[in-house]
Design a protein around this nucleic acid. Structure first.
Lengths: 123, 123
DNA sequence: CGATGGTGGTTCCTTTTGGTAACTGACCCC
DNA sequence: GGGGTCAGTTACCAAAAGGAACCACCATCG
């Protein structure tokens, strides 16, 4: 046991939020909303590559988990704003730490992959 | 911009390691190997529910990225040991922070879900 | 009147993911 | 020589993720 507080329960929670945030678009959306609140079409244009279906689906999921707030303005052309909640903001911070880890070790990972792929065999 | 250092490049890296670690079994394996080095069948027995196929596949992926080290002992019944590398250990630490976030906000998320599911309608 | 834009929903299809089960092969025990 | 262990591999299959495209509503614009 090199690490303290690494119990199975904790890792189970890690799995759960990975399920939430580990899909293809959640991080991109949370990140994009980190700057400021946006409307549906603005998000769609900002994220580049996301389909309408996945944008709605992912937003629903984030909204359900209280990470994103959806406010409908009952105006003439419907206007819907999405913004990060406090909870969503803290998640963004945490995900950033993960991103920092990735940035700091990107070269090690790349090197390991190169080594692995260059290996003659599993022999 | 509420958060500093939240550039798109960073989030792109976050996506990459999410892809690596966001699958169904990687976290479980890294967590299990965090305690001590184990053999293939020990891992399989320890993780409960993992199939042989996914164990090998996930281990290969982790090995390729330099997170897990695989040592083959050319003995009578084949013996293969898996253990976390230094890199894998730092990843475990980072994932633990994510797990901490999840633990600290589990009730908020559960509450948000309950609220959302109890809503009369999107009206 | 028809076109457009804003906010989705829905349907169909492909790709990816992951589970089951059976096979390999080397060695050992009985 | 039949059966067991260890560490996989391969073939097959079901479920889920995700993309493309089309539908719908409504209001304004030209």
């Amino acid at each position: 046991m090199q690490l303290t507080g690494v119990d199975a329960e904790r890792m189970c929670f890690a799995r759960q939020i990975m399920d939430r945030v580990g899909d293809k678009w959640s991080i991109a959306i949370v990140h994009t909303l980190g700057r400021d609140t946006l409307r549906f079409t603005e998000l769609k244009r900002a994220i580049d590559g996301i389909s309408q279906r996945m944008l709605t689906a992912t937003l629903r999921g984030l909204e359900r988990d209280g990470l994103v707030e959806r406010t409908v303005h009952p105006v003439v052309p419907p206007r819907v704003d999405y913004r990060l909640t406090e909870l969503g903001l803290t998640l963004l911070g945490t995900v950033c730490e993960l991103a920092n880890w990735a940035v700091n070790h990107a070269d090690e990972i790349a090197g390991a992959r190169a080594d692995y792929d260059a290996r003659p065999d599993t022999a």
